[in-house]
Design a protein around this nucleic acid. Structure first.
Lengths: 112, 112
DNA sequence: TATAGTGCTTTCCTAAAGGATAGTGGAATG
DNA sequence: CATTCCACTATCCTTTAGGAAAGCACTATA
């Protein structure tokens, strides 16, 4: 009459969700890993994101050591966002979501 | 001087995120796939979830055809939640999140 | 008859996410 | 000299997520 424990899976999944939740974090990581380095380039590569949200998320991703903010001392100063090696560990998650998302969209349109 | 397009990846990833976002959807799916069928069993298997949130998320997951609500006409009536076959397609995502979460926790504790 | 369990709903609330729009200061570009 | 680019910040607002606590109709159990 007891329930089945699933904490072995639920706990680490929740830990992961806590880091990458929200609409924007993974898209931003994808954009930076694709090679977009400038604030404006990242912004235009992600339709719908506003500068306020982008700035906030970039700070969060920096704190999680997924990207780094690099100040290049040219005149004028340049600011670059680069992926940290740790961002690579997210690749399996991104791939799985991409595959699922593509399939899901196919499924949705099949119904019509 | 242009930005690099990453829409091929960003769009499907956003489609997936739109379905499974939030703290609770994946934990609930994990619990149901583990074999928990009763409302109360699912609830106690996921620490911290409230009945209000659970009820709401179960409805959403039903609409996405990830689980089904089954009414069993015993006396008294029993209500069971069962995974739909489509839920299995989420396994690669859950696995990737689990692996990442376990590794992340290790990384965090290494730092101390 | 009192108590407990089941599957929720209801109410009230706070916090966080997200969106729209405008602006800013410096530097470069025409 | 006006405009544009860059990397943001500021302000204001709406929506959504989520949490705390209570309750409720029904059945079962002691």
């Amino acid at each position: 009459m007891g329930y089945l424990s699933c904490l072995d899976t639920v706990k680490p999944v929740r830990d992961a969700i806590d880091v990458i939740n929200g609409k924007w974090k993974l898209p931003i990581i994808i954009s930076v890993m694709t090679g977009n380095e400038r604030f404006t380039d990242i912004q235009v590569s992600i339709p719908g994101i506003t500068p306020k949200v982008l700035a906030k998320e970039l700070k969060g991703l920096e704190q999680h050591q997924l990207i780094k903010r690099v100040v290049v001392d040219d005149y004028p100063v340049k600011i670059l966002y680069k992926p940290e090696p740790y961002a690579d560990t997210l690749t399996p998650i991104i791939d799985a979501l991409k595959v699922w998302g593509l399939n899901h969209r196919k499924k949705i349109f099949e119904k019509d």
